[in-house]
Design a protein around this nucleic acid. Structure first.
Length: 372
DNA sequence: TCTGGGGTCCTAGGACCC
DNA sequence: TCTGGGGTCCTAGGACCC
């Protein structure tokens, strides 16, 4: 008996936010449901987070203004976005996936990769689907591939609720003539640049010399694009939980804020609020950035490094204001955002007092004391 | 269709140093 | 005095994704 073949499975929940809402309000089943903003489609500056398939049938899409969604689907039920509920539902689902005792890499609220050694990956996928629906009441699609890109692409064919497979030897047969922009990771800007190089299809991309791509896209992205054209790289499923690099909040105001003093005050409050949120995790803040958008959609970010990493809300807020004051604002503000960046976690060991840090950490301590 | 919020990673260019 | 070359740190912005 040989070793079973290695597969990557991509699990993607169907219409996740809408499904979570329907699960707790079963009377909504079968109705068009639109989740987004505060759930009031008459208020501007709010967009659709997720539309149920019934709403999608009327042309409602993610990212569309709620007002437009209501125009397209007047009978839809509009619901406010309820993050804590989706966080909790996501945790339920991921827990079911982890119960299979395979590496699980969480991609977001409603997606994960699984690393599976099996001679019958479809059977495994069916077991996953069955377990998820039995234990959470939510349905999902599963894609199977040799790479993450292939698995993710197959999921697109499996939605909603089915299983599909795309392997290395079928890649060009099934995607060779497709536009390069069909590939996960190639957005509109990159697709446009590729077209300017005469690269239109996936096959074109796979045949392009990596040096040519590097010249246009840089030494990392260029060669990576070619790998995408070839069906993806061998990046493994990483079960280690991701450590957040930072945390941010931003808010688009229903009407623009004309008073700079008011805006400044909000920067202060947002910064303090962020640090209060993050402090229990013990991650000290090293940088703070402020984002501003005006009515014309002019959007800029300013950032700065704190004199020293800190958990003190007042210190972070003060620095946020220093950064904010570098804007020369003469117009009303549509959006305000604040982002904090955390220091690198001390690798492999719990947080240590700087005075007693050893080894690699000690080097960091030396370097930081040498800064002017 | 007047355009959300929360992330990640990469690149460019200036400052500064040797 | 016409001007090197490399390295690192830092900030701003681009691009993409869910």
């Amino acid at each position: 008996m040989g070793t079973p073949r290695e597969w990557i499975l991509h699990v993607d929940l169907d219409q996740f936010l809408a499904a979570v809402e329907v699960r707790r309000r079963p009377e909504l089943a079968g109705r068009p449901v639109v989740v987004g903003g505060d759930g009031d489609p008459t208020r501007p500056r709010q967009v659709v987070a997720t539309a149920s398939y019934e709403a999608r049938a009327h042309g409602v899409r993610s990212g569309m203004p709620l007002r437009t969604a209501q125009r397209r689907c007047p009978d839809a039920v509009f619901l406010p976005s309820d993050r804590p509920a989706y966080d909790a539902a996501s945790a339920e689902v991921m827990s079911v996936l982890r119960s299979f005792d395979v590496p699980v890499e969480v991609l977001g609220w409603d997606e994960a990769f699984l690393g599976v050694a099996s001679d019958d990956p479809e059977a495994f996928a069916e077991q996953v689907k069955a377990a998820v629906v039995e234990r959470t009441g939510l349905t999902c699609a599963v894609g199977i591939g040799d790479t993450k890109l292939q698995a993710k692409t197959a999921t697109g064919w499996a939605k909603p609720g089915a299983v599909a497979r795309l392997t290395r030897d079928e890649w060009f047969e099934r995607l060779g003539d497709a536009p390069a922009s069909d590939i996960w990771g190639i957005g509109p800007r990159t697709a446009e640049k590729l077209r300017a190089l005469g690269i239109h299809t996936v096959l074109d991309l796979a045949r392009t010399d990596h040096a040519e791509l590097a010249a246009t896209f840089g030494p990392t992205i260029g060669p990576h694009l070619r790998l995408l054209g070839l069906g993806g790289d061998d990046d493994p499923v990483r079960a280690e939980p991701r450590v957040a690099k930072g945390r941010s909040h931003e808010e688009t105001f229903t009407t623009d804020l004309p008073d700079p003093a008011d805006v400044r005050d909000r920067v202060d409050r947002m910064a303090r609020g962020l640090v209060d949120e993050v402090a229990p995790e013990g991650r000290r803040v090293t940088h703070v950035a402020v984002k501003v958008r005006t009515a014309s959609f002019w959007t800029r970010t300013r950032s700065g490094k704190l004199p020293a990493p800190t958990l003190d809300p007042a210190a972070v807020a003060a620095h946020a204001l220093v950064v904010f004051d570098r804007f020369e604002l003469d117009r009303p503000v549509r959006l305000l955002g604040v982002r904090v960046t955390f220091e690198e976690p001390a690798s492999g060991s719990p947080p240590t007092d700087p005075g007693t840090a050893a080894g690699g950490e000690h080097q960091d301590a030396i370097r930081s004391t040498m800064e002017p």
